[in-house]
Design a protein around this nucleic acid. Sequence first.
DNA 1: CGCGAGCTTGATGCCGATCAATGCATGTGG
DNA 2: CCACATGCATTGATCGGCATCAAGCTCGCG
Lengths: 245, 245
Amino acid sequence: MPTEAIKMRLEPFKVACSNCNLRELCLPVGLTRDNVDKLDTLVANRRNVARGDTLFRAGDAFQALYAVRTGFFKTCVSSEDGRDQVTGFQMAGELLGLDGISNDSHSCDAVALEDSQVCVIPYDQLEELSREFTELQHQFHKIMSREIVRDHGVMLLLGSMRAEERLAAFLLNLTQRLQARGFSASALVLRMTREEIGSYLGLKLETVSRTFSKFQEEGILEVKQRQIRIVSQDKLQSLVNGANC
Amino acid sequence: MPTEAIKMRLEPFKVACSNCNLRELCLPVGLTRDNVDKLDTLVANRRNVARGDTLFRAGDAFQALYAVRTGFFKTCVSSEDGRDQVTGFQMAGELLGLDGISNDSHSCDAVALEDSQVCVIPYDQLEELSREFTELQHQFHKIMSREIVRDHGVMLLLGSMRAEERLAAFLLNLTQRLQARGFSASALVLRMTREEIGSYLGLKLETVSRTFSKFQEEGILEVKQRQIRIVSQDKLQSLVNGANC
DNA sequence: CGCGAGCTTGATGCCGATCAATGCATGTGG
DNA sequence: CCACATGCATTGATCGGCATCAAGCTCGCG
């Protein structure tokens, strides 16, 4: 498309959904090209977050949503008495900050697990734009709803699965999302510690470690610190399905 | 206001948010009177659901959201191998069906725990109307976001609390919501079985029962089957805060 | 009145938590 | 370049909370 080629040459580094390679995974999913162009008016700047830094914290005023462009995040909530719980891990193309809408303030922390970059999506502008065109509105609602469905899945996991099943489900979910981003379905590098995995899965870090070791002994995985290779996807899947019970 | 009085007399039984006593808790929260009138064009019919019946099931096509008008519901998801998990309990003024937006099909079952009535909110009309006026759009987004925040709270509970803390948190949450609806903060009748509570809290029904008994022995509650009286709200609260650890 | 669903209570066992020691990789300063 | 510190992971030993199995109990209802 010549006009686009020209545009690319003239504005080669413009921050824009229309020339982002994540547009098939991110907010613009399902939007027509014209509509993605409209989105560009909204998503005008990015923010870098170094490993270990927070994108936002519980209590911060809510102003924008963030789309992960590169890198990896965790979100965690904490109770008054200091316990905290990882509520999710977010990778490229996933949205952060939806919790903030309810109260005009965030209710969890978002921490970068590696040097990361996010697109800033000012929330009032998103509302405005999604009043103007249906597609965006609908897509946004789907993303929120998907988050609710995901959370219900985690509740099922936390409420009724045993350690092995939890870890298996976790790994399958991770690889599935990585695969959608063009990575291998069978080899991955964990971005989080055993403790963070444990917090997410409602287990202690020792249990996570032991379960990794067990999977290795059983020939399901190869584990070298954070390098994981899935040897038998089938066995992993059958653990989740409870086929062996 | 005379015009309204006339309206009431002419259409005394009209299904309408504007004359619903739940409008301070439900979708119309924060809307001006005029805007509530607009909502009335949308929420035009109700549906009765007998105790034990489902409002919708996982897999059903998604078409509408439902606002509980009277009664009590549970929602539950289930995994392939038959395990199921109660993901929430909904009472008057709360919205059901948000999970359906993500896929155009529901991902959980909604079951009435007593004879209930819901207002049917056709989803496409809700989207349309919320494009027309900001207030409704914003309110709807807040409701979805609130659901996400609630789910994160449940994840914290399931991931890191012990049985007593879970039950205490559950009771406090229930009474708080009942109180907002004008009921006593200290006496309640459970609408669900021990098994359903257990499923929600990630515990077995025996554990729920034992924990109720323990709370009774300790003078925190009076328990007579499903009749609960909270004797010491403070002790209950301190269990959740971990003040006794 | 008797049946059955739901609840309580007891006895036992197991899974995962806890406590503790060691190993391994990375980084830093002498 | 080595010595040492630090953060993370592994592995073992022990313990405890909750699940499980099993037996009665309660209450509403046909």
